[in-house]
Write a protein that binds this DNA or RNA. Structure first.
Lengths: 173, 173
DNA sequence: GTGGATGCAAAGAATTTGCAACCAA
DNA sequence: TTGGTTGCAAATTCTTTGCATCCAC
């Protein structure tokens, strides 16, 4: 139902967006072709939208960013699945289980802090992130040593940000 | 079904159930009463089932463990939501997004490794877990210092376990 | 031109809600 | 007795599938 609050996902604080959007498109295009796929208009629009956001967003948000009338919701679902398979995007979950996607290709490991009140996405400072990253790597090394294959992980932090103003139910929609 | 096949979790014999389970029930009962709720039969069955499993399980699994005819699926949904609110259980997600629940009350922080092939749930060894726990605590301390409130996190590891035999699609169901 | 991608409709799966009957306190 | 809980049915929400059409290559 499109009737829900229009609240767009709050913008990420500092950090701007990757100036590498152009490169990203070129790179993904190559990957798609290599896989026997086609680089369509909706496809480009979605990647551009994801890159512009620069943080995990819902399917609905992508749909709106691309333009609800410019691309069917079903196409978003199908494309995200395909992109994930290609390793271009990564799927994560909001604290309430809502599915989120963001660009993973060429993206340095970043850790997100999601505000449970405003859904605003923040990031750990580089130093803290570095320490955490090290710990996680250590764990994964250990798992591989234990014989695990294709080791991966998922981690997210949640909290109510200091300047949370509008505790919204469906702000993320 | 997550860990094993049909086999119900080997229950402790005539002597009674694990002492911890007993305590858990008593403690939760008190919490429920304090909250103006009632300790019903399905309620006890669910907690017992969760405690017996001792690791994250699906709603469906709980339903089967309790006995599909002994309690409605809807009741599981409602109760898990209530238990989560009380802080008795914790919700997590399988790598494909499937919702999982497990006891969180009085539970030391444990980290799970989920096999993507068999859905079997394993745990990090205490030492590794301890290190990781320390890192995560450090991050959360930093977030609190930054002004975040109600800080929490979610972390899970995935991989294909060394002895993965039956790669199943819906083994967890 | 041709096969993969898209849009629309419809099916499925997962989760929630309404309400009368039920039972724990 | 009495209000919280349960079960059953129905409604919602989210996601996937079928298929004819369309367009990237």
């Amino acid at each position: 139902m499109i009737a829900s609050t229009q609240t767009h996902h709050p913008f990420v604080g500092p950090g701007g967006q990757p100036a590498a959007t152009k490169d990203l498109l070129a790179q993904v295009a190559e990957m798609i072709h290599a896989a026997g796929g086609r680089v369509t208009k909706p496809c480009i629009a979605m990647l551009t939208a994801l890159a512009a956001r620069g943080h995990p967003v819902t399917i609905e948000q992508i749909h709106r960013d691309v333009g609800v009338d410019r691309c069917d919701l079903v196409t978003i679902y199908r494309s995200m699945a395909a992109f994930e398979e290609l390793g271009v995007v990564r799927r994560s979950f909001f604290h309430d289980g809502t599915v989120l996607y963001d660009i993973s290709l060429n993206q340095p490991t970043r850790f997100h802090v999601v505000c449970k009140a405003t859904n605003r996405v923040d990031q750990l400072d580089p130093e803290t992130a570095k320490d955490l990253h090290r710990s996680i790597e250590a764990v994964q090394r250990k798992l591989r040593a234990r014989g695990y294959d294709g080791v991966s992980h998922r981690i997210e932090f949640f909290g109510i940000s200091p300047n949370a103003t509008a505790p919204s139910k469906s702000a993320k929609k």
